[in-house]
């Protein structure tokens, strides 16, 4: 891919990101309830004080002007004050972000590690026992309500069997020195096996709950695209040349067969990001998703606004990157 093409693609991103920002801004501006009054609740504030805070927060200016100022500040990483933490939204979000990243990556890793081998095997041994099991499993995976399944796993494995911890991301005693804020990574950097175990044990249930629907979908996609690829002429040709089936799959089929998996995996990060809200609530995970849910109920708009924007931008960028990767991997795709 030439630099010009790359630039063009990046150029396509800008209107999308702008549109996303407009919608997020409108969503929160049109929400009933006055942030100034919320911030001054419990404070015996006179209407004059509320009006003054409204002015300070710029709420009395026209919508367009507020939008421009919102975008201007957002570009500098300033999303205003979190109404209840009374600290900058960006700071509060950054504190909770590593946990969410860790959980999302773990869920994605789980989904990929389960779905790709299963999908490939199901396609290769089409109609066999494994194929049927995988198909049924995938159906269950997309049909399970995550919040409910998470609760059942929590009660089963953490409370009753006591195999896994009930809540949180790591125990204090096992905590590695903080470098990245990602417990698994920090444990490995510190070469601490106990920490790694502890962090992984905390991750197992939330990551499975979050990653299961994605695993199911990716399994289906991989299976279908592998079946497609295995029927292609060049595979038949390779077989005719006398190459072993295992080698054919490894050398030729996988490379092409996994292309759709990449795209769909990127698309499904959307459900990972959304699912975080539910899973973190169920498992007491100290991430951003739980914070967003809590913030909605106290109408902490600046935080909700910034978080929704962050999720959307992440999602757009992930899909953009997957798109690039797809183009790079697949020489047949031209712009």
């Amino acid at each position: 891919m030439t630099p010009v093409l790359l630039l063009q693609r990046v150029g396509h991103l800008v209107p999308v990101l702008l549109g996303v920002t407009v919608i997020v801004f409108l969503m929160m501006s049109l929400t009933p309830g006055d942030p100034a009054e919320i911030m001054l609740a419990n404070q015996n504030a006179t209407p004059a004080q509320v009006a003054m805070l409204r002015h300070d927060m710029g709420l009395d200016r026209p919508l367009m002007e507020r939008f421009v100022s919102f975008v201007g500040h957002a570009l500098q990483g300033d999303f205003g004050q979190s109404l209840f933490h009374r600290r900058p939204v960006a700071t509060v979000i950054m504190e909770r972000l590593p946990a969410t990243i860790e959980l999302s990556v773990a869920a994605m890793a789980f989904a990929l590690l389960v779905s790709i081998p299963l999908g490939v095997m199901a396609a290769v041994y089409r109609g066999g026992v494994l194929d049927r099991l995988a198909t049924v499993g995938a159906l269950l995976g997309v049909s399970l309500p995550g919040f409910w399944f998470g609760i059942l796993m929590l009660i089963g494995f953490a409370v009753n069997l006591r195999w896994l911890p009930v809540s949180g991301a790591i125990d204090f005693a096992a905590q590695p020195p903080g470098i990245t804020g990602l417990m698994v990574v920090d444990s490995m950097l510190a070469l601490r096996g106990d920490s790694l175990m502890n962090a992984l044990a905390h991750l197992v249930l939330p990551a499975i709950t979050l990653g299961l629907p994605m695993a199911a979908i990716l399994m289906r996609v991989t299976r279908a695209s592998m079946l497609e690829v295995l029927r292609q002429d060049y595979i038949t040709f390779a077989e005719a040349k006398g190459l072993g089936r295992g080698r054919i799959i490894a050398l030729h089929a996988l490379k092409n067969g996994l292309l759709p998996t990449v795209t769909v995996a990127a698309m499904e990060t959307g459900s990972l990001l959304g699912g975080n809200m539910v899973v973190e609530t169920v498992f007491g995970w100290p991430g951003l998703g739980r914070l967003v849910v809590e913030s909605i109920f106290v109408r902490n708009y600046p935080l909700v606004q910034a978080a929704v924007l962050l999720y959307a931008v992440t999602y757009v960028v992930v899909n953009f990157l997957a798109d690039l990767l797809y183009t790079v991997l697949n020489p047949r795709v031209r712009m």
């Binding site: 929590l154 009660i155 953490a158 409370v159 006591r162 911890p165 009930v166 809540s167 949180g168 204090f172 609530t281 169920v282 498992f283 007491g284 100290p286 739980r290």
Partner: peptide
């Protein structure tokens, strides 16, 4: 002293019952 934040009622009770 470790103050562990466990917002879920059932999880908090479970943690107590388990001795955590």
């Amino acid at each position: 002293t470790i103050i562990k934040i466990i917002p879920e009622n059932a999880s908090r009770v479970a943690a107590l019952l388990a001795g955590d």
